[in-house]
Amino acid sequence: MSPSPSPVSSSAFQVLAGLVPNGVVGDPTKKALHESEVRMETWSPEKVRRRVREVFAEVPDDAVAIADCQSFLDPLHILPNTNGSRNWGLFQISDARLAELGGTPARALDPEWNIQAARKLWSRERDFGDWPHCERALKKTPAAPSASASR
């Protein structure tokens, strides 16, 4: 017997199949699993890294670090928040930002759309302020003091 899908992968499938994403594999989801032509294929982490670096040519390492911190480079990553909202895809674009950008949950799970949307957000101030919880991913570790400096 195969394991049940996780609530996150169930929610991603539900979004892509046009269902209300609740993470529960009830009758509508089961029906869609059997009848839908939706496939859960997506980009590999290597392809994600490569495309993020191309789109964020000025700050490629920082952009990859943010995406990795936000979603572990998983384009189908969905994070439910305690207030009922969600964050979507590679850069975990919030419901509020998604509406502002004219996107939908299904579009946000498209890696190319998500990367381009993140680029638009970054371009406003040319910083990663939309992702404050991942600032640690951008901080460079200070160099260890040299032996001569400690004498």
Results as ranks from 00 to 15, higher is better:
residue 3 P to V: 11
residue 4 S to K: 09
residue 6 S to I: 12
residue 6 S to E: 13
residue 7 P to V: 11
residue 10 S to D: 09
residue 10 S to Q: 12
residue 12 A to L: 01
residue 16 L to D: 05
residue 19 L to W: 02
residue 20 V to M: 04
residue 25 V to P: 02
residue 26 G to H: 00
residue 29 T to N: 03
residue 31 K to H: 10
residue 34 H to R: 15
residue 38 V to N: 03
residue 38 V to K: 00
residue 40 M to E: 01
residue 40 M to K: 01
residue 44 S to Y: 03
residue 44 S to D: 01
residue 45 P to K: 05
residue 47 K to S: 11
residue 47 K to Q: 14
residue 47 K to N: 07
residue 48 V to I: 12
residue 50 R to L: 14
residue 50 R to D: 14
residue 51 R to F: 15
residue 56 F to Q: 13
residue 59 V to W: 09
residue 59 V to F: 05
residue 59 V to P: 08
residue 64 V to Y: 12
residue 68 D to W: 14
residue 68 D to K: 09
residue 69 C to F: 11
residue 72 F to V: 07
residue 72 F to W: 05
residue 75 P to R: 08
residue 79 L to V: 09
residue 79 L to I: 07
residue 80 P to R: 05
residue 83 N to L: 06
residue 84 G to S: 04
residue 85 S to W: 10
residue 89 G to T: 07
residue 89 G to N: 04
residue 95 D to P: 03
residue 95 D to K: 06
residue 95 D to W: 08
residue 96 A to P: 06
residue 100 E to G: 06
residue 102 G to W: 14
residue 102 G to T: 10
residue 110 D to T: 06
residue 110 D to V: 01
residue 113 W to S: 14
residue 115 I to R: 02
residue 115 I to D: 04
residue 116 Q to E: 10
residue 117 A to Y: 06
residue 119 R to L: 12
residue 119 R to A: 13
residue 121 L to Q: 03
residue 122 W to S: 02
residue 123 S to V: 00
residue 126 R to D: 03
residue 127 D to M: 04
residue 128 F to Y: 07
residue 130 D to H: 11
residue 130 D to K: 03
residue 132 P to E: 05
residue 132 P to T: 09
residue 133 H to K: 12
residue 133 H to P: 00
residue 134 C to Q: 09
residue 136 R to F: 12
residue 139 K to P: 00
residue 140 K to M: 03
residue 143 A to F: 02
residue 145 P to H: 02
residue 147 A to P: 03
residue 148 S to A: 12
residue 149 A to L: 13
residue 149 A to G: 02
residue 151 R to E: 05
